[in-house]
Simulated assay, not measured.
Amino acid sequence: MVSGLEDVTLATIALVVVAGLAAGWVDAVVGGGGLIQLPALLLVPGISPVQALATNKMGSIFGTTTSAVTYYRRAHPDLRTALPMAVIALAGSFGGAVIAASLPSSVFKPVIVVALVAVAVFTATKPTVGELTQLRHTGRRHYGTAAGIGLVIGFYDGLIGPGTGSFLIIAMVTLLGYNFLAASAKAKIVNMATNLGALAFFLPHGSLLWGLGLVLGFANMIGGYLGARMAVKQGSKFIRIVFLVVVAALIVKLGHDVWVENIRG
Rank of each mutant, 00 (worst) to 15 (best):
S105L: 01
G95L: 12
G95Q: 07
S102A: 07
A97N: 01
V98L: 15
G96T: 06
V117C: 05
A100S: 06
F94G: 02
R80W: 13
V87L: 13
L83H: 02
S102E: 07
L90N: 05
I88T: 07
T81V: 15
S93C: 03
V111W: 15
A115H: 13
G96Y: 05
A115L: 15
I99Y: 11
G92H: 05
S106G: 04
L83K: 01
V119I: 14
G96W: 07
K109H: 01
A100H: 05
L90D: 02
V98C: 06
A115F: 15
A101D: 15
I88G: 01
F94D: 03
I112L: 13
S93W: 05
L103E: 10
A97V: 01
A82I: 02
P104W: 05
V114M: 12
V98R: 06
P110Q: 13
V87K: 02
V114C: 08
A118S: 07
S106M: 02
A115V: 13
V113L: 03
L103G: 07
A91S: 14
L103I: 14
R80M: 11
A82K: 00
A89D: 00
V111K: 14
S102C: 01
A91I: 14
V111L: 15
A118D: 08
G96M: 06
V114F: 15
F94M: 10
V98N: 02
A118H: 13
F94A: 12
V114R: 10
A115N: 11
M85H: 04
A115Q: 09
V98M: 14
V114D: 15
S102Q: 04
A100E: 08
A97Q: 00
P84I: 05
V114Y: 10
F94C: 06
V98P: 06
S102Y: 03
R80N: 11
V119Y: 12
T81W: 05
R80E: 12
L83P: 08
L116M: 12
S93L: 07
A97T: 00
I88E: 00
M85Q: 03
V111Y: 15
L90T: 04
T81E: 12
